[in-house]
Design a protein around this nucleic acid. Structure first.
Lengths: 150, 150
DNA sequence: CGATGATATATGAAAATTCATGCAATTGGA
DNA sequence: TCCAATTGCATGAATTTTCATATATCATCG
């Protein structure tokens, strides 16, 4: 890096993370929109795409946490996505308080293509870094997420 | 890290960046709200706090880019912040199309305290990493921001 | 068994954000 | 010098998000 940071935000980790996240996503956003989705919809379908998503679905609360949205925001979005045919909503037989969300066949198709594109985008993004640097970067990011609450 | 990633998003850089950014900010959000600001207001005042901010102010367009908000979003926010007494708005003598934004004395006071708190929070956040690792992490994040447009 | 506290989600109102667009000002080229 | 293209921002309407709260359900304890 050339000139040293001269403003507080230029060396503030929270800000650097926000900018990096924003810049990386911005590059991919065009493909998401071309597929007919908005940012949060892509995030929802990506989260549902495997793991728990392929078994019983995820609860509204779990999904809200994973996609970094507040619960009412997600509830309203899931209702719109169900209306649009991307996901389906069902009751949880184990707990009637809970709503379960699963990707529909249509949602699964669109997200499968986007995941392929996302992998290609990430490969291009990280071409300047060694495999070891990428592994370390991701480990550090995971460590920042998993901090115990103070 | 323990279990290997089993879902696409668990190893997807864009998602890891978003989660890390969200988690780190969430820890600090309480102090921002206690100071009477919302997230984007803190970001605006932090951006204005030095560098260009202490000289002639910043234009709406420059500031929108720095704080990662769309231009109409920022225009409306700056109007609310001016009404609340955090910033002042003025014309740019060099270009009448432009609006200049500066922090007010009140805005400068509140942000000075928050910057101190932010530095302390970051120190605690990064306690588990060596200085070299921190420097490298920030360099990589800056590199992700500065990619040439494809 | 019943009451209480906790959990999960849905909803309405309010606030914030986005989109599309219009207007004013600047720039550059013919 | 003039005009077209571009730039910068403000605004209204629509959409999304948040906040506060209500309702239903579950878990625990007396």
């Amino acid at each position: 890096m050339a000139a040293p940071a001269k403003r507080f935000i230029d060396d503030y980790l929270s800000y650097l993370l926000a900018r990096a996240s924003h810049a990386v996503y911005k590059e991919f956003d065009q493909q998401v929109r071309s597929a007919g989705l908005a940012s949060l919809e892509w995030r929802v379908l990506a989260t549902l795409s495997d793991g728990d998503g392929s078994t019983g679905g995820m609860t509204i609360g779990e999904l809200a946490q994973e996609v970094l949205a507040k619960q009412p925001t997600l509830t309203k979005l899931i209702q719109r996505m169900a209306d649009a045919g991307w996901v389906s909503i069902g009751a949880d037989p184990a707990d009637a308080r809970r709503t379960l969300v699963r990707a529909n066949a249509r949602g699964k198709r669109v997200v499968a293509r986007l995941i392929d594109a996302a992998r290609a985008h990430e490969t291009a993004l990280l071409a300047g870094l060694s495999a070891r640097e990428v592994t370390r970067l991701k480990a550090v990011l995971r460590g920042l997420v998993r901090r115990p609450a103070a």
